[in-house]
Lab assay of single mutants.
Amino acid sequence: VKVYLPNKQRTVVTVRDGMSVYDSLDKALKVRGLNQDCCVVYRLIKGRKTVTAWDTAIAPLDGEELIVE
């Protein structure tokens, strides 16, 4: 899953069964001094942002793009 992060940064996270968006992005956010409490995650669908819950399973999102703001 390709993830666009604040400050024009981006990362790619590996999809693993049983993991949530929260778990999958935890390290990427912490390395950048961010956490899930201060950010909102969106799914990018056909160029439009849709709010996605942090506890959403990451497996069904394989191949999609997320935006964290």
Rank of each mutant, 00 (worst) to 15 (best):
S20G: 01
T52M: 15
K2P: 05
T52H: 04
D26F: 08
C38I: 12
E69Q: 04
T52K: 06
N35T: 14
L29R: 00
Y42Q: 00
D62G: 12
K46W: 03
R16A: 13
T52V: 15
R32C: 10
G18P: 03
V40D: 00
C38V: 12
S24W: 06
V51T: 07
G33S: 05
V1N: 03
V15C: 13
D37R: 09
T14H: 09
V15G: 09
R48H: 13
R10S: 15
D23G: 06
V15K: 02
V3C: 08
G18M: 01
V3A: 03
Y4S: 13
A53P: 14
R10N: 14
D23H: 06
L34I: 05
S20N: 10
K8M: 11
R43Y: 02
D37P: 03
V21P: 00
Q36I: 12
N35P: 03
D26E: 14
D55V: 03
V31I: 12
P60F: 13
R43H: 12
V68D: 13
Q9D: 14
P60E: 14
A59Q: 13
R32I: 15
L5T: 01
E69F: 01
M19T: 13
R16Y: 13
K2R: 14
K46M: 08
K46L: 05
T52W: 07
E65Q: 09
L34N: 01
K49L: 07
R10F: 15
G18L: 01
V41I: 05
Y4R: 13
G33C: 03
R32K: 06
Y22N: 06
I45L: 11
D62V: 15
N35Y: 13
L61W: 07
V3R: 02
E65V: 12
K30F: 04
A53F: 01
V15E: 08
R16D: 11
W54N: 01
Y4A: 08
Y42L: 00
E64I: 04
G33M: 13
K30I: 04
A59F: 13
Q36A: 12
T50R: 09
K49D: 02
V40H: 03
M19L: 10
T14N: 11
I67N: 07
V40S: 07
L44N: 11
W54C: 07
V3T: 00
L34V: 00
L44C: 03
L29S: 04
Q36T: 10
I58S: 07
P60S: 15
G18Q: 07
L29P: 00
R16T: 11
R10V: 15
L61G: 09
V13R: 02
L25F: 01
D62A: 14
E64S: 11
A53M: 04
D26Y: 09
L25T: 00
D62L: 12
L61E: 08
C39M: 05
V31R: 14
S24Q: 06
C38Q: 13
V51C: 06
P60K: 14
S24I: 14
C39Y: 05
T56L: 08
Y4I: 13
R10Y: 14
D23A: 09
R32N: 15
V12D: 07
L29N: 04
V40W: 02
T52I: 15
D17W: 07
C38E: 15
R16F: 09
L25D: 03
M19G: 08
Y22S: 15
V13S: 00
D37G: 08
T50E: 05
V21A: 08
S24L: 12
K2F: 05
K8W: 06
K49G: 02
Q9F: 05
Q9Y: 05
L44S: 10
N35I: 03
E64R: 03
A28F: 10
K8R: 13
D55W: 06
G33T: 04
R43E: 02
E64V: 08
R32M: 15
R16G: 11
L25N: 00
V31Q: 13
Y22H: 14
V13A: 03
E65L: 06
G63M: 08
V3Y: 13
P6W: 00
I58K: 02
V21K: 05
L61D: 06
C39R: 00
P60R: 12
G63H: 04
V41G: 01
L5P: 02
Y42H: 04
E64M: 11
D17Q: 13
Y4G: 03
Q9N: 07
L5Q: 01
R48W: 04
K49A: 05
D23R: 07
V13T: 01
V51P: 14
V3Q: 00
V12M: 08
K46N: 15
G33E: 08
R32D: 05
K30S: 08
R16M: 09
E65P: 08
L61S: 10
L61H: 07
L34Y: 05
C38H: 13
R48P: 05
L5S: 02
A59W: 10
V40E: 08
E64L: 13
I58N: 02
R10P: 07
K46H: 08
R32L: 14
E64Q: 14
S20K: 06
N7G: 14
L44H: 10
K30P: 00
G63D: 09
G63A: 10
V51F: 08
Q9V: 13
R16S: 12
L5M: 12
R16I: 12
C39T: 07
N7I: 01
N35C: 12
K30Y: 06
T14E: 10
I45D: 11
V3P: 00
M19F: 07
M19W: 12
R43M: 00
K30T: 10
T14D: 09
V12K: 11
V21Q: 02
R48G: 05
L25I: 04
D62E: 10
V3W: 01
R48C: 06
D17A: 14
I45P: 00
G47W: 01
V12G: 00
V41Y: 01
D17K: 14
E69T: 09
R43T: 08
D17C: 06
L5C: 02
V31G: 11
L29E: 00
I58V: 09
T56N: 07
V31W: 07
Q36E: 05
C39V: 10
C38P: 03
Q36K: 14
G47R: 02
V12Q: 09
C38D: 12
N35M: 07
L34A: 00
T56H: 10
V21C: 03
A53N: 08
V31P: 06
I58R: 01
Q9C: 05
L29V: 02
N7V: 01
P60D: 15
S24C: 15
D17N: 14
R43K: 09
I45C: 05
G63K: 03
D23V: 06
P60V: 12
V3M: 02
Y4W: 12
C38M: 15
K46D: 15
T56F: 03
K8F: 06
D23K: 11
L25G: 03
V1E: 02
C39H: 09
E64T: 13
I45E: 08
D26C: 14
E64Y: 08
S24E: 03
T11V: 14
S24V: 14
G63C: 12
V51E: 10
A28R: 00
T14S: 10
L25Q: 00
L34M: 10
D23S: 10
S24P: 01
V12E: 12
V12T: 11
Y22C: 09
L34T: 00
N7Y: 09
D37M: 05
V51H: 10
L25A: 01
T11R: 03
I58E: 04
I58F: 13
D55H: 08
D17M: 10
I58D: 01
V1A: 03
Y4F: 12
V51L: 14
D62N: 12
G18K: 12
A28I: 08
I45A: 07
Q9T: 09
C39W: 02
D17S: 12
D37W: 02
A59I: 15
N35V: 10
Q36F: 10
E65D: 10
D23L: 05
N7W: 05
V12H: 11
G47A: 05
A59E: 12
T50L: 04
V31F: 09
V40G: 02
V13D: 03
W54V: 01
G33A: 04
R10I: 15
L25H: 00
V13W: 02
K49C: 03
T56R: 07
I58M: 13
Y4E: 10
R48N: 12
R48A: 10
E64P: 03
M19E: 13
K8T: 07
D37Q: 15
G47E: 04
A59Y: 14
R10E: 15
V3L: 09
V41H: 04
Q36S: 09
N7S: 07
Q36L: 07
V68I: 10
A59V: 10
R10K: 13
A53G: 13
V41R: 04
Q36H: 09
K46P: 01
W54P: 01
M19V: 12
Y22L: 12
L25K: 04
T14Q: 14
E69K: 04
D23Y: 02
